[in-house]
Design a protein around this nucleic acid. Structure first.
Lengths: 242, 242
DNA sequence: GTGCCTTTGTGAAGCTACGCACAAAGTGAG
DNA sequence: CTCACTTTGTGCGTAGCTTCACAAAGGCAC
């Protein structure tokens, strides 16, 4: 691989920190719009909804970009975080699966404004192929490999039904894609070196339901066994098929 | 508050565990569909994409539901996890904001099958009010409080533009809602006792971009300063407004 | 230049989570 | 009944993350 110059922030940006950088970036953009020139870690932390010490430690992983007694220069910090996240270059993104969700994603403004350019929309359904969505014409998934290669797609968003997701995943990884954002409710199997991030709408609701239940009755104090003394036979009475 | 019977799994289910339970539940449902009667922690862990020791420890927080030498009864475990997550009751959910995303959510099948019932769709735009989506008629946000009260809504999904999110949030919390799933790219301010979970599509992409950049060039070895020796003045050249 | 005030950057302590490895517990064959 | 085998449940060492608290550093007034 390429030689690397060892540096303070060389290899060691913790995942937890990386996950928060976009949050800081958004808060900073808000401040920039209002023309704020500098911001203290305290104020920025409040805007981003985190502890100020955590924010300082996070930023310290990027380098020493603050000024003691003053704070951080908003524009400068926006640039540094953007660069660290790789948002100063633009990324070609392909969305596979143009159902309700894929359509919503294609129209979502938050992508284009952050260096993500939707370079292709693909679907297996001939009835959808040819539709014009968000300025792009939907192409057939047969074109998947050629679209990826010709338009230098480096990130693929999978918004297909669960059953198709693994197949699409296999094809795009074989085509050289190493970053996948998966909305299908399945655990994708990928080769070494491929990053998958998963967004699962129903999981979030289930976590909320857990806490809501905890709040409603001070914790589950109901019976621990089956509802009616039912034996543990295969009754298929509870599990909802997805 | 209500008296609580102290129990092994009384108060102490770690958040990290709660976040994984839905994953196990999905894997179990898959096994149940194929008629598998029992499963070992090893196999279930593989299906869910986690370490088997972690899975066993997670499940041990719920109780001792396995049989040594055999494994876990699939149906029984589905029931126990469902109950712990509160999925054995049904939850009335209202979706505020019926844009592309709200529409996708309303049509997403993964909710209904897990005890989440969409009880209301609301939007501020008169052009959308009255539309029929996923079997529901979109109502005006003026009706927000009455919809929440009359239909016992306990979870609200915010899928509005960022600018409207805090206002909607204030109204629903004042109406007694204590669980919110937020898709708007803002940090919501809520009173004590209210749970907010945030799903941010662009943040996931930014995290992917970070890792992708790391893979491309073995870490950022480019200049650490401004592109051209530019001074740190307010140039507004980088930050994209959201 | 001096001294005060503000705010950063970070050492250190506490906490949570992860995963190994193993004893305890259950099954099934003979 | 006994023995060999499987698999759970968990104690424990480790790694990573969070938070506190403070010394070091810079700005500003005079």
């Amino acid at each position: 691989m390429t030689r690397r110059i060892p540096q303070a922030r060389d290899r060691g940006i913790p995942d937890a920190t990386v996950a928060r950088l976009p949050l800081y970036l958004r808060a900073l953009n808000g401040l920039a719009e209002r023309g704020t020139p500098t911001v203290s870690s305290e104020d920025l932390a409040t805007a981003a909804g985190v502890n100020s010490a955590k924010l300082r430690k996070d930023l310290s992983h990027l380098g020493s970009y603050g000024t003691r007694g003053v704070g951080y220069d908003v524009q400068y910090l926006i640039y540094q975080i953007s660069r660290e996240l790789g948002l100063t270059q633009d990324w070609a993104v392909a969305i596979v699966g143009v159902g309700n969700l894929g359509r919503a994603l294609a129209n979502y403004g938050g992508f284009a404004s952050r260096g993500f350019r939707i370079a292709g929309l693909l679907d297996a359904d001939p009835a959808v192929v040819g539709d014009r969505i968000a300025g792009l014409v939907v192409e057939h998934t047969d074109e998947l490999e050629s679209v990826i290669a010709s338009r230098a797609v480096s990130i693929v968003v999978i918004a297909t039904p669960a059953t198709a997701a693994q197949h699409v995943c296999d094809r795009v990884t074989r085509a050289g894609v190493t970053s996948i954002l998966n909305f299908a409710p399945v655990v994708l199997n990928v080769p070494e070196g491929v990053d998958v991030r998963k967004v699962d709408l129903s999981i979030e609701l289930q976590i909320l339901a857990f806490h809501e239940q905890r709040k409603a009755n001070g914790g589950p104090i109901m019976a621990e066994e089956w509802p009616d003394g039912v034996e543990q036979v295969n009754e298929r009475s509870i599990g909802a098929s997805s």
